[in-house]
Design a protein around this nucleic acid. Structure first.
Lengths: 254, 254
DNA sequence: ACTATTTATTACCCATGGGTAATATACGGG
DNA sequence: CCCGTATATTACCCATGGGTAATAAATAGT
């Protein structure tokens, strides 16, 4: 599908003074891509809608064909990121393994997410910039993410793969460390996102694991079904789709 | 000294319609206390100088007797927090112990700092809101903090108290987790700042220590002089005083 | 081709909030 | 008692930027 030309990846669907066609949803997404980039670069309050528009070769009022307000754009950016996290959690929960296995899996995926724009938007944007409704949604979603980490830890303690500890604080410690990646990681740096993610996954779970990973020992304890490797097909996410009227065409977000 | 009355801690030195005397520096600090609180509650951009002034029972232009601009206030808030960190680092470096000892000591102190207003300002405020000069200062200071963590880790690897690892990433992992405390900790919550700090110190260093702390074993390895316990007298900080023309009367900041 | 709909543009509104000027009040000292 | 200085107030300026109205250009359907 998608008979779009072998185009040299036109950053913006609006070419300076040219044919401007294309599906509405693609433009919507293009706006979000431009917005999330600018919001991260400049900060939400310093980045103006004029800036966003300029980056797309259009003018500010055109944006209002796709969004009702600046904070709605912010919310949608966050929302896309949240869908990605939900994917991580859903995949991880679906796959088998001990609590520790799941914790590690989620940690890797989450860490890698934090090196991407939409991932960063989860931790760099300020909920207080949203309207009340959206703020509630975001706060609920954040709780759910925290829950995932915490549940895996509890599960790990139960099945013996994780040493007894305070799940709440441990989850905070791990998630905090990961969230912070979103503050310092820059794509241009010496390390790839994946590399950081894997290193962090080891480092962060090492402290609470019953088994050590020193000197890359083969994954030691594995309860039932081994972790399946299907990360290609996005199995229809369940209720998780907490973010608003998200029916958008989740196409290439990378 | 400080023969101030046994006053019932007047939150603001400007009582509604009353005697308004007091040393200039105290007022300056009062402004900063009000500002840091508001900036944290509302976010720098949503908090207005009118808000700050109102909280002090004065009006906006009065603030300009003490500061030249809003972003200077922001900088000074950050600066006070930075002095506190510098104290932590100086104390820790002065005290003895293995690299791990120092890492733990710094971790505890830093974590606790993150539960205070001025500590939070170090990680919640956006450097991009500062003017170019101050931004440089902040960035330099941040590097120095990172360096402290990293140095202790390296030192620990050398003296055998810390397992071989990438100091850079490990420092990021630990500091990130601590910094995140500044985002979620709220004084009203179930845990005291000190409690969080101690728990985090254990949890975060456990992963890279050569010796385990499971079941609160007495501190195992200790090289030379045991960690001294003098945290009362602030030994004159050295060069560390990177923050601008800081000659302020660092009195009660808590 | 003609028209309806979508999508963009130009030109504007206006609330917000940082910052300033002019002025008033308090204070300390000779 | 009067004056200079420090500190506060009232009243204002104005750049910024989110958002809208009126209008023009492109697109699709018939």
């Amino acid at each position: 599908m998608d008979a779009s030309a072998p185009s040299s990846s036109p950053q913006s669907p609006w070419l300076p003074f040219e044919s401007r066609r294309r599906a509405r949803d693609e433009k919507r997404e293009a706006v979000l891509r431009a917005a999330v980039g600018l919001f991260l670069e400049q900060g939400y309050h310093r980045a103006t809608l004029n800036d966003v528009a300029k980056r797309l070769n259009i003018t500010k009022p055109a944006l209002y064909n796709y969004f009702r307000s600046k904070d709605e754009i912010l919310f949608e950016c966050w929302s896309l990121g949240n869908e990605l996290v939900d994917d991580c959690i859903a995949e991880t929960s679906a796959g088998g393994g001990t609590g520790l296995d799941k914790l590690r899996k989620l940690t890797v995926r989450y860490a890698e997410l934090m090196t991407t724009d939409y991932g960063k938007s989860l931790v760099r944007f300020d909920v207080r910039d949203l309207n009340e409704d959206n703020r509630k949604i975001v706060q609920t979603a954040k709780k759910r993410i925290d829950r995932a980490f915490r549940d895996y830890i509890v599960q790990g303690i139960d099945d013996g793969s994780v040493r007894p500890c305070d799940p709440k604080l441990s989850a905070f410690a791990i998630a905090g460390s990961l969230n912070w990646i979103g503050h310092w990681f820059q794509p241009g740096g010496p390390m790839t996102g994946k590399a950081v993610a894997e290193e962090f996954a080891i480092r962060l779970t090492e402290g609470i694991a019953t088994t050590t990973t020193r000197k890359k020992a083969g994954k030691p304890p594995r309860t039932g079904n081994a972790a399946r490797e299907d990360r290609s097909e996005h199995h229809e996410r369940t209720a998780a789709r907490a973010a608003g009227q998200s029916k958008r065409a989740r196409s290439r977000l990378r």
